[in-house]
Amino acid sequence: MRISIDDVTVTLAGRDIVSGVTLVAAEGEIAGLVGPNGSGKSTLLRTVYRHLRPRTGRVLLAGRDIRSMSTAETARHIAALPQERGGDFEFTVCEVVAMGRSPYKRAFAGDDAADHEAVADALDQVGLAGYEGRGFAALSGGERQRVLLARAFAQRPDVLVLDEPTNHLDVQHQVELLALLRAQRRTTVISLHDLNAAASLCDRLHVLHEGAVVASGTPREVLTPELLAKVFGVRAAVVEHPLTGDPLIAFDHREPAGPHPSGGAGRAFVSRSGHP
């Protein structure tokens, strides 16, 4: 399903954290949000999975305002993996993943064969088959992250909303997760700090700076040395990855580009196609 963010502004504590953002993730597209810390990525994602209500604008799922849908109906279509995980769960891995089936069930209904199949399939996808009986609280941070991703997969959603899903994962599991998301081709809106991972995974990137989208386009269009210097405050070269052909950012770790951008400097950027 297509997800559209239409002129969304989010105000928290009297300040606009996200300001007039418009972007689209087409059906089957992986749309990445990148930007410095505090640029509004997580806040914007929270509006997509209904944790926050925008002050203005709307989020559309296949043309329908998600605020016109019930919470359960939204959850049958949109699954989220937020950054905030809450406290330790005193549940088994199987019980945590089975929580992803709740949008399809009546209150206090037991699990049926379809639920068991969805849970088993989700755990297999994240490489945790055989972990069903383990306690969630006893897992490593990376294992917990994969269990929570399995919970999102168990919802069998049309849209995935993922906020820094590679946090706590080692390199092998980061690569496996990105490959899994790429292979699924499910409509996905994802925030990533790792710009090289974003360049490899995403069909389109939207760069946020101070709550506004300052560039949109393919990774090759967006990730230029000029943008990296002005938005991220780093000196870098963009070359071709020798194995994949994707854009590869080589950062200069010895010399920064200069003072980190402030004010509205980054807002002058637009995509090469001319769209914000």
Rank of each mutant, 00 (worst) to 15 (best):
L248S: 06
H193S: 06
D194K: 03
N167F: 06
L45N: 12
A109D: 13
E210N: 14
I30S: 07
A229G: 13
E27R: 15
G32C: 07
F153S: 01
G28C: 08
D88A: 14
G266K: 01
A250M: 13
A98C: 01
T22F: 08
P36K: 06
A129T: 13
V21T: 04
V96I: 14
L201A: 04
L128T: 10
L192R: 04
V10N: 00
C202W: 06
R50K: 12
S42M: 02
P36W: 06
D163H: 11
D16N: 15
L60P: 11
L12C: 05
R58F: 01
D121A: 14
T187M: 02
R156I: 02
L227I: 05
I190Y: 03
P242H: 12
R106Y: 09
D112S: 08
A114I: 08
A237Y: 04
S19K: 15
H275I: 09
P247L: 10
G130W: 01
D170T: 08
E255W: 11
S19D: 15
F251Q: 10
H260G: 07
P157C: 08
T47W: 05
L181T: 04
G245E: 09
L195K: 10
G217S: 07
A13Q: 15
D7M: 10
V8R: 01
L148Y: 10
H275L: 14
G38M: 09
G258V: 06
H209S: 14
R156C: 05
M69Q: 13
H193E: 10
H209K: 05
L178F: 08
F232G: 09
V231Y: 02
A25R: 02
S19L: 13
V239W: 03
S4G: 08
Q83Y: 04
R156V: 06
Q184I: 03
T187Q: 03
L61F: 09
V222D: 02
E84Y: 12
V18P: 01
E90N: 12
S271G: 15
F136P: 00
F91E: 00
V119F: 05
S216I: 00
T218N: 07
T166W: 08
M69S: 05
G263L: 05
T9K: 05
F269E: 00
R53T: 15
L169Y: 12
A137Y: 07
R254M: 08
E226I: 02
V96M: 02
D88S: 13
A154R: 02
S140W: 07
A107D: 06
G130Q: 05
A122E: 02
E164N: 09
Y104C: 03
D6T: 10
R67L: 11
L243T: 14
R101H: 11
L23Q: 00
L45Q: 12
A229T: 11
T9H: 06
T11F: 00
L81C: 07
V8C: 04
S102V: 11
R15Q: 15
A79V: 05
D121H: 13
R46D: 08
L148F: 10
G40I: 04
H116D: 12
E255V: 14
L208P: 03
L205W: 06
A212E: 15
T187S: 02
V10C: 12
E143C: 01
V48Q: 04
S262M: 09
P82A: 00
F91G: 00
F136A: 00
L52V: 03
S191R: 10
